[in-house]
């Protein structure tokens, strides 16, 4: 069964030659006909399918479209053309701070993000101890998040997200924080998810990590698919290019 079907996906970002953010600049630009922009193809006619239970690595240089692809699958941005079909609940984990609010306490942030991810108030209340202990921040539940280390924030974000028990997990560079306790925690969860036939899309520069977790890997180059095959083959192509 396919859980993700991506069909002819194209995303164009219009990059203006001059940045105009005010109406006045826009009108002036219109009058002197300088409202020109360049089309940047973040994704160019990308099609692929992911089966249930697969762990897919996504690699490629910076700016190759990895994050854009994950954001479109997560529904955060809309594609210019093409279709994405997703079967099942999606949990996006696209940046390490998760967009948490620094002025709120850990507990308040859990309620904030729990409700954004679709957890009911009761469910959060029941699980809040579990979330805090998994993130190892029980002692700091009433501390403002701006006083947390980046590792603590990452653990908390990951901990909230796995409470939603998603079918599909989208991960973007989550090991960049280099927190010693965070990585083993994630790996533990990944192993469990593998058994439960959950699907993970894992964008990373860390080829070793991709190699050890993903049976298949997608190599993106300038918004196009360069290769989509067994991880070892794809990494070879990437390293030799």
């Amino acid at each position: 069964m396919n859980v993700i079907e991506v069909e002819k996906l194209t995303k164009i970002f219009k990059i203006p030659h001059e940045k105009k953010s005010t109406l006045f600049e826009y009108i002036i630009g219109f009058l002197v006909e300088s409202n020109s922009y360049e089309n940047l193809y973040a994704l160019n006619n990308v099609s692929f399918k992911v089966k249930k239970g697969e762990f897919i690595g996504i690699i490629g240089k910076n700016g190759s479209g990895k994050t854009t692809l994950l954001k479109i699958i997560a529904g955060i941005i809309k594609p210019t053309s093409g279709k994405v079909k997703v079967n099942g609940s999606v949990a996006p984990f696209l940046s390490l701070n998760f967009g948490f609010h620094g002025e709120l306490t850990a507990k308040e942030n859990i309620y904030l993000y729990g409700s954004l991810l679709g957890l009911s108030k009761e469910k959060i209340k029941q699980n809040i101890e579990k979330i805090l202990s998994f993130a190892e921040v029980e002692k700091f539940q009433d501390t403002k998040l701006k006083n947390f280390s980046s590792g603590m924030v990452a653990r908390l974000a990951f901990s909230v997200m796995i409470q939603t028990n998603p079918d599909i997990l989208l991960l973007d560079e989550i090991f960049a924080v280099g927190d010693k306790d965070f990585v083993p925690k994630c790996l533990e969860v990944f192993k469990k998810y593998k058994k439960e036939q959950k699907t993970i899309l894992f964008a990373s520069h860390d080829l070793e990590m991709v190699q050890s977790f993903c049976e298949k890997t997608l190599l993106l180059e300038n918004g196009k698919i360069r290769a989509f095959d067994q991880t070892k083959k794809v990494i070879d192509i990437y390293l030799n290019s």
Partner: peptide, 9 residues
């Protein structure tokens, strides 16, 4: 914006 950039709302 930080929320909108991370989660579908």
């Amino acid at each position: 914006y930080p929320i909108l950039n991370n989660i579908k709302v």
